[in-house]
Nucleic acid binder design. Structure first.
Lengths: 200, 200
DNA sequence: ACAAAAAAAGCGAAGGGTCGCTCTTTTTTA
DNA sequence: TAAAAAAGAGCGACCCTTCGCTTTTTTTGT
C-alpha cells in the first residue's frame, strides 16, 4: 500500500490552513473562494478536498489555530509587551483582521461559537490565575474584563489600522490593580505616537 | 411631473434598510441575498434597486444607522444602565451580532472603515467630555479604553449569547475612577445570574 | 370637473457570472 | 504494480443586477 508518511499528510493539511488563513485575513471568509486557496497554497482543488470535506471545515480549522497568546504576568511591563505583540501580529500577519472575521462568523454559526467560547474561557482562566493576591476575590470578574479589553484592542487595530496601546495598558492595569498604576511603572508605557494612528 | 412626496420616498428607503438590518443581524452580509431583503421588506427587487444602486450601498446605509447610544454620565448607575441597554438591544434586535458583522466588514473595506472610524471617534469624544475633573488630564486615554470595552461587551454578547454586565461595569468604573468604585455604588451593580451565561 | 397624457414608481423574469463541490483521469509512492 | 494522492475540467446551484413592462400618481388640456 503506497501511503505517504503521516508527517507529510500533516504538513499538507497545515499548508492548506496557512494558505486559507492568509486569504481569510486579507479578504474575509465569504470573499475568499476555493480558487483563492488553491492559488495561495499551490495545491489543486482535488487535493484540498482530500483533507477537508468543505470550505466550512477549513474555516473551523483556521479558527481552532487562531487562539491568541497571553501575558505571563500582570505587571505594567508584561502587559505592555503583550499589547505590542498583538500590535505586531496585526501589522505582519493581519491577525487582528482575521480575529474580526472569526468573531463575526462565530456570532452566526453555533459550531464556530463553541470553538471561540472555549478559547475565551481558557484565556479568562489563565488570566484569573495571574491576578495578584490582594484582588484574588475578584479574579474572575477581573479576568472577564481583562480578556475582553485585550480582544477589543485587536478589534480597534483591525478597524483603525494602528492604535496607540498606551491607553489600553493603563486601563488593563487599572482593572487589575483597582487603582492607578504607580508612577514609575506608568512611565514604562510606550507613549511614542504610532506610525499612522486612525488610518487603515 | 408626477412625483410622490419626499416623506414617502424616505419611508420606502427606511423600509429597505430596516429589512436589510434584520437579515444582516441574523445571517451576516454575505449570507443575506437580495431575495432575502425582498422577502423581508415586502417590496420587489426592482423597487429596491431604485433606492440603492447595489447591495454594498445597502450595507453602508445600515452601518451608518448602527451607531450605538452612550451613557450620559460616568457614574456606576448610569454606566450599569447603559450596559443593560446594550444587553437588551442584543437580545431583542440581535444588535450585537450586527455590530460584529460591521466590524468584520470594516476591517476589509476602506469605505466602511471610514464610516466606523468616524462613529468611534465621535463616541470617544462624547465620553471624554464626561470624565470627572480629577482625571481630566487623561480624558482621551480614558475615553479610548472606555469605548473599546463597551464595544467589547457587545462582542461578547454576540458570541456567548448573554454575559453578566457586572464585571464590565466594575472595569469601566475602574478605568474612569482610576480606583475601585466605592462600596455603596458597587452594590447597585446587578449581580443576578444572567439567563444562560456562556451559551448562545 | 374630467379624462387623457406623461412620468415616476414598482415589478419580476432572465442574463451573465461566480462559486463550491464532484468525479474521472493522471501521477506518485511504497 | 497496485493503491493512495494529486490534479483540474465540468456541473449544478445561487446570486447580483439589468431591463422591459405594468401600475400608480400627478399634471395638463379642454
Amino acid at each position: 500500500m503506497p501511503k505517504v508518511s503521516q508527517a507529510h499528510l500533516d504538513a499538507r493539511r497545515q499548508q492548506i490552513l496557512d494558505a486559507a488563513r492568509a486569504r481569510f485575513a486579507g479578504h474575509g471568509f465569504a470573499h475568499t473562494s476555493m480558487a483563492d486557496i488553491v492559488a495561495e497554497s499551490g495545491l489543486s482543488i482535488g487535493a484540498i478536498y482530500r483533507y477537508f470535506t468543505s470550505k466550512e471545515e477549513i474555516v473551523v480549522g483556521v479558527c481552532e489555530q487562531a487562539g491568541g497568546a497571553l501575558p505571563q504576568s500582570l505587571t505594567a511591563e508584561t502587559v505592555s509587551g503583550f499589547l505590542e505583540h498583538v500590535r505586531a501580529m496585526a501589522r505582519e500577519k493581519g491577525h487582528a483582521r482575521l480575529v474580526a472575521q472569526i468573531y463575526a462568523e462565530a456570532a452566526l454559526s453555533p459550531s464556530l461559537a463553541t470553538v471561540v467560547r472555549q478559547q475565551l474561557a481558557a484565556q479568562r482562566a489563565a488570566v484569573a490565575a495571574l491576578v495578584p493576591d490582594h484582588r484574588r476575590g475578584d479574579a474572575e470578574q477581573i479576568a472577564e474584563a481583562f480578556v475582553a479589553l485585550c480582544s477589543s484592542y485587536s478589534q480597534q487595530l483591525a478597524i483603525r489600522g494602528d492604535v496607540d496601546p498606551a491607553p489600553f495598558t493603563a486601563a488593563l492595569m487599572a482593572i487589575v490593580e483597582g487603582q492607578p498604576a504607580p508612577p514609575e511603572s506608568r512611565r514604562t508605557v510606550d507613549r511614542r505616537r504610532p506610525g499612522s494612528p486612525d488610518s487603515p
